[in-house]
């Protein structure tokens, strides 16, 4: 009996980064749209937007590259 192929850890990482990317980017875009900036230093740099976007891109890359049906 052959065992089903294991989902690589990189796929799980892709899932996590994508979910976090959506959550953080989403919040960043809301901040950007409404102008309600968080009370933190350098808030005008909109870190949630670019950090969230970076996580999302990385996450999607891992999701696609290591998807279980490949």
């Amino acid at each position: 009996m052959t065992r089903a192929r294991e989902i690589p850890i990189w796929f799980f990482i892709g899932v996590l980064l994508s979910v976090y990317g959506v959550m953080i980017l989403g919040y960043g875009l809301w901040e950007l749209a409404t102008g309600h900036l968080a009370n933190v230093v350098l808030a005008h740099l909109h870190a949630p937007v670019w950090w969230g976007a970076l996580m999302l891109v990385l996450g999607l890359f891992y999701l696609v590259k290591f998807r279980p049906d490949r």
């Binding site: 959550m23 953080i24 919040y27 960043g28 901040e31 900036l37 968080a38 009370n39 933190v40 230093v41 350098l42 808030a43 870190a47 949630p48 950090w51 969230g52």
Partner: peptide
């Protein structure tokens, strides 16, 4: 706390 708002 200094740099990271909600989510981060």
């Amino acid at each position: 706390v200094r740099y990271c708002g909600p989510g981060l």
